[in-house]
Design a protein around this nucleic acid. Structure first.
Lengths: 340, 340
DNA sequence: TTCACATATGTAAGCCCTTACATTTGCTAT
DNA sequence: ATAGCAAATGTAAGGGCTTACATATGTGAA
């Protein structure tokens, strides 16, 4: 069933059928209905390939995501996909994993598939020079590349980021001001956001003259293994490192800190404070509930698509957009002692 | 940059280039390397549309998922995507949400895009007759349709399911045998799996002559809102419903049960038992850790792809495959009192 | 050397659309 | 009635690839 069959049945030329299909103006109402009727009647579906060949686009955006099973990234993918579809685009999803080679081949693949744009979600790899230089720029030379929570100064690459520096800076500041002087920073990601968060922590601690490199702790294991994270903290403690507060770069790390505190029989938040990041479902699942930083993921994603759509429409769009986050205070941090 | 440019530069015909590209046997080693070199040299990428036009396939599988931000479904999508890519297929992701119309249009879209197969993940809608009859069958008439944790007896539709009936049956049996007589069943999904779980619970309770409809409680709210879930249980309690155990159809509902128990100052598991489902990250995040049923999602997904690939290769494949789950016992359920 | 045959390469006909350009139709203004 | 013009429709040329079929090249046996 092709456009020829339809044109024959409707008694018009294929050009007219094509015009009807594409909503061209120059078709009389009479022929339009006639054609639409026959199309419906014989259940014709245009061949997307032929269409793509002609138009050189299939209205598809590639989403590159290291690990869509990570709840935070999954949410991002979800928001992006929905917003994209609302704008008439489809999403080709590539979960690359964390290997550089896989990422490279994924970008290749997306290019081959003639996607109209690429969105990088959770680009922990932005800073691997090879990747950055050779592959992102290459892709950007052809189609716009959108970065969620990452920044790269390359033409045709657009960034939407949350102000993680300030959020973490604030969180650290507040925790120290509430009397916790030995705040441990617990992280497991070296992404752009990850670095910004760490910088924020550093800035705040330095400002208070409390900065100590020993308190900055990287967790190298699985992103899901709370046990291992807790154990990591226990080990540090056993090695003599003292801390009575944890600023985590992720809610799950924060949860591990809560577990640690419980095991140590610290009272939360009286003896021990914890603050998470992302304000995920996990934050309200534990006991006490987690103070966490909400970085407005949905807003970020929404804006990202707005910009992408703008770029694709040929408009001039901002290269970098920053949104600020918000500390959602719950049970794992103390309230400031207001002096009345 | 087309195949013509390459053929010219390499001094061969386009057919030869095409053969090299498609790994045809009838090419001498000498020409092959020559062509591959020029391809690499001028950075040629085949046009997927033209390719699709010729081959009438683009090696793409459509994934239909109600809500990929649900951690369980996100994991499924992740496993599926990775396995698919390992087999040379790409994934077109459609997050349909829970509206029937959106699902229908998503299927249409996937068909238009000429995907080679469709995978339905989290098909809570399988039993909406309209959908089932008109759209799934329509799609299956053209391409294979794979159902994860759902069953539909329609030609060209294949099902991979976990034996949720038995898992829940076992869990209920054990809980009663450990002395909990008033086990509440707490669920929020009416999917195929959801129904099977409920049936399992019913069967076990009936067997023990403990079945009471009042103990079967549906939670209608957001799938993420632990507070609302907890509140729901509190309300039931206030209304006079007594229960000292909860079998939840999902870990997050189980978490709500744990919160409820804590609020009631029940000791877990001495006074109150809880069992979750899916053995998600949540299970090890709370305190005490959740007993939960692991339904081997990765295995299911892996097998699903194996079958899909088989079907696409033209092989005869089983219409329905069942995997059994496993109860992962943790801190929210009692151990059986072994009589020595 | 020559023939028969296998292997390598080339030619050209699709695949199904879109769209520039050509042609026809239907009006209005004269 | 007719020129002149806009709107509707048609014709045909790609778009970049695959592949059946035709042709050329190379091999070993007679």
């Amino acid at each position: 069933m092709t456009i020829y069959d339809v044109s024959e049945k409707a008694g018009v030329s294929i050009a007219t059928v094509s015009r009807v299909l594409n909503g061209s103006k120059n078709v009389s109402e009479k022929t339009r209905t006639k054609v639409l009727d026959t199309i419906r009647q014989c259940g014709y579906t245009p061949n997307a390939f032929a269409r793509g060949l002609g138009l050189n686009t299939m209205n598809t955006i590639g989403i590159l995501c290291a690990d869509s099973s990570d709840p935070y990234l999954a949410k991002a993918v979800y928001y992006i996909e929905r917003k994209l579809r609302a704008n008439g685009y489809d999403s080709l999803l590539c979960c690359t994993g964390y290997e550089l080679d896989d990422k490279i081949s994924s970008i290749r693949l997306l290019l081959t598939k003639k996607v109209d744009g690429i969105i990088l979600v959770g680009s922990n790899f932005i800073y691997e020079k090879d990747f950055e230089n050779k592959y992102i720029s290459d892709a950007a030379a052809r189609i716009p590349v959108m970065l969620l929570n990452a920044v790269l100064d390359v033409p045709n690459v657009y960034s939407i980021v949350s102000d993680d520096f300030t959020s973490m800076y604030q969180a650290a500041l507040e925790m120290t001001e509430n009397g916790v002087r030995d705040v441990l920073y617990f992280y497991n990601s070296t992404s752009y956001s990850g670095k910004k968060k760490l910088e924020g922590y550093r800035a705040a601690m330095a400002e208070k003259e409390l900065l100590s490199e020993a308190l900055i702790q990287y967790f190298p294991g699985s992103h899901e293994d709370v046990h291992a994270m807790t154990k990591h903290l226990m080990t540090l403690n056993r090695q003599g490192l003292r801390f009575h507060g944890v600023l985590a770069s992720d809610d799950i790390l924060a949860l591990a800190a809560v577990k640690f505190a419980k095991e140590m029989h610290y009272r939360i938040p009286e003896d021990f404070s914890v603050s998470g990041y992302n304000n995920s479902m996990l934050a309200t699942c534990c006991d006490p509930e987690l103070t966490s930083i909400d970085n407005k993921l949905e807003t970020l994603c929404q804006h990202l698509i707005t910009i992408l759509v703008g770029v694709l429409a040929g408009n001039e769009m901002p290269k970098k957009t920053v949104f600020s986050g918000e500390i959602i205070k719950r049970g794992t941090t103390r309230r400031p002692c207001r002096i009345t």
